[in-house]
């Protein structure tokens, strides 16, 4: 048994979470491109094929629609497949199977057929990669009824959330912030993190609320520290779940601070941030002292990586938004 708290990178925490889920339930299967012998291009599944065998860790043919489509069939047979999509930008060949089949199966069968399928998607920028390797496509899936969409930002959440996602009888899109795969953080193996769909307060403050998911959470914490040095008290929320969204803590925080800035790497137009801004305007209008602001990637294709730092929101852009919010 591992020590109860260990410092691990997020990728290794996921690996441990997958191992625990596979050991608990022999209907859990992993499937994807290069996940067996190689252990995945990010090594998230390293060692699992040796441990659980080739029938439980499948190196599939190179076809994303095929991976998700066959996972649906396996789920019909009683398995709990966990699919790895190698990179964010390569999920679209599977888009039809995810949105038209996986997402709708439970509803169209009046609940007779459940789809306990997890789709793991390494996503987001900051890794200097070529086209199609740094995107943030989560809004497409949050928009689709029938899917749950989550994204851990810390190793501890990664370890626990992957296990909860696998236990869910619904399809879960599991977005892994790939720029956070390597930094280490504490993983507490004994007591579980917040529930899968809970928004969490990661820093308390009184003047303005910052909200993000995935890799942006660490950017917000940097910005909050700089702001604190300048005398501004910032509250930081980690969204963790994009469908459903746990609005309770968001509304409570806005009631306290009166100001909300929603941050994301994804393009801002018709995004998760847009949805949160609209809902907060509906539910907390009289608490707001300034408009909800969005700090997002631009509405362009993800740029060539030499200029990605101008595309991705950084702490300075967040600080600029804090200034704009406080100026009202």
């Amino acid at each position: 048994m591992a020590a109860s708290v260990e410092e691990l990178p997020l990728a290794k925490a996921l690996n441990a979470g997958l191992r625990a889920a596979m050991a608990t339930d022999d209907r859990v299967l992993l499937m994807g491109e290069d996940i067996g012998t190689l252990g995945g291009v990010f090594r998230v599944t390293e060692g699992l094929q040796d441990e659980f065998g080739k029938k439980r860790v499948l190196d599939t043919p190179l076809a994303e629609s095929g991976i998700v489509g066959t996972a649906i069939g396996l789920a019909m047979r009683g398995y709990r497949p966990v699919c790895e999509i190698q990179f964010d930008g390569f999920i679209f060949p599977a888009f039809d199977q995810i949105t038209s089949q996986l997402a709708k199966m439970t509803n169209r069968t009046s609940g007779a057929v459940h789809m306990p399928v997890v789709i793991r998607v390494p996503y987001g920028g900051h890794i200097g990669a070529v086209e199609h390797h740094q995107e943030s496509p989560e809004a497409y899936f949050a928009h689709t009824a029938g899917l749950r969409v989550v994204s851990p930002s810390t190793p501890n959440d990664a370890y626990w959330m992957i296990q909860e996602a696998i236990r869910s009888d619904d399809p879960v899109m599991f977005f892994e912030p790939k720029s956070r795969y390597w930094p280490k953080g504490p993983v507490d193996f004994t007591s579980s993190a917040a529930p899968l769909h809970a928004t969490r307060v990661v820093r308390t403050g009184t003047d303005v609320t910052l909200l993000a998911h995935g890799a942006m959470v660490s950017t917000l914490l940097q910005a909050a520290q700089v702001a604190a040095d300048e005398g501004v008290s910032v509250e930081v929320l980690d969204l963790r779940s994009l469908s459903p969204i746990d609005f309770g803590p968001i509304i409570s925080s806005v009631e306290k601070t009166g100001r909300l800035i929603v941050c994301q790497e994804a393009p801002g137009f018709v995004s998760v941030g847009s949805e949160i801004a609209a809902t907060v305007a509906e539910r907390a209008f009289f608490s707001l002292q300034s408009p909800v602001l969005r700090v997002s990637g631009f509405d362009t294709p993800y740029p060539a990586s030499k200029i990605e730092t101008f595309y991705l929101p950084d702490a300075d852009r967040v600080l600029d938004a804090i200034d704009r919010s406080l100026a009202y």
């Binding site: 066959t70 649906i72 069939g73 398995y79 039809d96 089949q101």
Partner: peptide, 20 residues
């Protein structure tokens, strides 16, 4: 299944499960 061809993959996945 109304989306043309989708069910062929479900069948293949199901058959993989039968074999497992």
């Amino acid at each position: 299944t109304l989306v043309i061809g989708s069910q062929t993959l479900h069948a293949t996945g199901y058959a993989m499960g039968v074999a497992f």
